[in-house]
Design a protein around this nucleic acid. Structure first.
Lengths: 155, 155
DNA sequence: TATTGTTATACTCTATAACTATA
DNA sequence: TATAGTTATAGAGTATAACAATA
């Protein structure tokens, strides 16, 4: 259960890197009209399809109230819309609008810049390979639920 | 200069992971009385020794004004103190107090929990090895200056 | 009663702008 | 004039608490 001493060091270094990387990412998306959290939601809706507020919040690992703030901005910007759930009157389904889909598509075509450029600039081919293998592991760690049940998607 | 198509995918996945991991980290440090940014500064002062506001801000990759807010909290909490720079009257040197050193030490002894535990729980030995090799690369990316010069430390 | 969503409020994190003091 | 630091202000991101509507 307790992590060994080696892992401690790796974890600490990872924590440092993540803290700095998120600042890079935030700065990079600063000029683009949407914020980091907003992009995260847009990309998720694009990848996984429409979802309820609760399901989205679980996937993003934040509270529904917090997600609501993000979704409100996206709604004002015209990127997402609410529609009624077919069978459950309490639920509302959030989906990308045509404009939202276009935004995600154009962003993808523009090349997702910053991080990819950094990797191209500062890593050797072998190092890029090593990173490519490790990233799915990071994702697995990231998607592990904190003390909660994993949310079922959309339903 | 432009990253190839393979890297794009890795970068995108990395971005997703980093966004979620930082939420994990924030939650993990929530109960401990200090926030994520505060911990980052405390650990840096412990690793690298006393520093001026400007140097610290550069290392943390935020503006001096932003750093000031963090340092103010740490000062109120008694973890750091300001002292005059020996030769330059404009500068102020920030250093850990005895209490700050104790805090960092105890935190280290307690085991830096969350991330290390996740790694122990959800990764095979081979996967841990792969991650351990990739983390220094992440750090290299993270420490690359955005459009700025790297700050010289303390002086 | 439990779940879904919402509104109100507050605190952290970071930025920009404008200022003072020192070099 | 340039640099180091500070204060004021604002917006993003998230949390808790309290509530309404529906199941």
């Amino acid at each position: 259960m307790a992590a060994d001493i080696q892992l401690q060091g790796v974890a600490e270094e990872l924590q440092l890197a993540v803290g700095l990387l998120v600042r890079h990412m935030r700065m990079a998306s600063a000029g683009s009209g949407v914020t980091l959290s907003q992009v995260s939601v847009l990309k998720r809706l694009d990848r996984e399809g429409p979802a309820t507020v609760t399901a989205l919040a679980r996937a993003e690992q934040i509270r529904p109230q917090s997600l609501n703030a993000t979704v409100s901005s996206l709604r004002s910007a015209g990127y997402v819309e609410h529609t009624a759930h077919p069978t459950d009157g309490r639920r509302k389904v959030i989906a990308l609008t045509e404009q939202g889909r276009r935004f995600v598509r154009e962003r993808k075509e523009a090349g997702h810049g910053r991080l990819a450029d950094l990797m191209a600039d500062r890593l050797s081919p072998a190092e890029r390979q090593a990173l490519a293998e490790a990233v799915p592991l990071l994702r697995r760690l990231a998607e592990a639920p904190s003390p909660h049940v994993p949310g079922t998607w959309t339903e």
